[in-house]
Computed example of a mutant assay.
Amino acid sequence: MLLNEQIGIETVSDQLLDQIEGLYSKGTSDVKLKHNDAVKLETFLRNPDFALRKSEAKNMEEVFSFLERPLLEKKYAKRSYFGQIRKDFLANRTAWIYPKVLLLLSDYRFGSFRAGLSLLYLDKPLRVGEEDEVELFLLLSTEEKMAHVPLLFELDFLLENEFLAELRKGYSMFDAFLMKNLTVKENSKKR
C-alpha cells in the first residue's frame, strides 16, 4: 500500500521512508531515518569483495561462507547474526524476492551493526530445496535505524530492470548495474 504511488527508487521520499520505519518502530518516534544516511547499492556492487561471481557453489554452506566473509571482515555484523540467518534458512524462512533470487537477512538484534550487502551470482544455479534454483544470493546486514530499507528499494528497482539478464551475458555486477542505469536514463529522456 505504501508503495502504490512510488514510480521508482529515484522517487522514494523521506516521508515514505519514515512511514516504513514507523511500521517497525513499535509506535515510538525516537528513531528517525534520514534518506541522506541511506546506504547505497552502488557502494557494494562496485567492490568485488561484496559483489562476487562464481561458476558454482557446492552447497548452501559454501554460499554462506562466500557471502558472510566481507560483512564479517568489515564489521557489519557478528557471527551470531549469520548463525541466525542459517537457522532461519534451515527452518524454511526465506525471502524469494524474484525468480532465482534469494534474500537472506535477520533481525539486527542477533548481532548486526550496519546496513550492508553481500551478493553472490552463480553461473550454474544452485538447487535449494526440491525444485528451486538460485542464481543470485543477497545477504543483507540490518541495523536499528532501518538504513537498510532504501537498499531494499534499490535492489528491487535493479532486479526489475534486466539486471539478471546482463549477468547471464557475462557482465560483472557493477557493469550490469551501470548498463541498467544508462538504459533507464535513456528511456526517461524519450518520454
Rank of each mutant, 00 (worst) to 15 (best):
Phe50Cys: 04
Tyr76Leu: 10
Met179Gln: 11
Lys145Met: 09
Gln15Leu: 12
Ala176His: 01
Leu103Tyr: 01
Gly129Ile: 11
Leu103Phe: 05
Leu158His: 01
Glu143Ser: 10
Leu117Met: 13
Glu68Asp: 10
Lys74His: 10
Leu16Lys: 13
Ser106Leu: 10
Glu21Met: 14
Pro125Glu: 09
Ile20Leu: 15
Ser29Arg: 13
Leu152Gly: 04
Phe110Lys: 09
Arg114Val: 03
Phe89Gly: 03
Phe113Lys: 05
Leu182Asn: 08
Tyr76Gly: 07
Phe110Gln: 14
Trp96Glu: 15
Leu159Cys: 04
Lys180Met: 15
Arg86Gly: 06
Asp88Gln: 13
Phe110Met: 12
Ser106Arg: 06
Ser80Cys: 04
Asp156Met: 01
Leu138Gly: 05
Leu120Glu: 10
Leu23Lys: 12
Leu102Val: 09
Asp14Asn: 15
Leu103Lys: 00
Phe163Asp: 12
Arg114Gln: 14
Lys180Asp: 09
Pro70Cys: 10
Glu56Met: 01
Leu167Tyr: 05
Ser112Gln: 09
Phe82Ile: 11
Glu61Pro: 00
Pro99Asp: 15
Arg86Ala: 09
Gln84Phe: 02
Leu139Glu: 04
Ala165Met: 02
Lys189Ala: 13
Glu135Trp: 00
Arg86Lys: 15
Val39Ser: 09
Ala176Trp: 05
Phe89Gln: 10
Leu33Cys: 05
Ser141Thr: 15
His148Ile: 08
Pro125Cys: 06
Ile9Ser: 14
Glu73Ala: 14
Ala51Asn: 10
Lys124Cys: 05
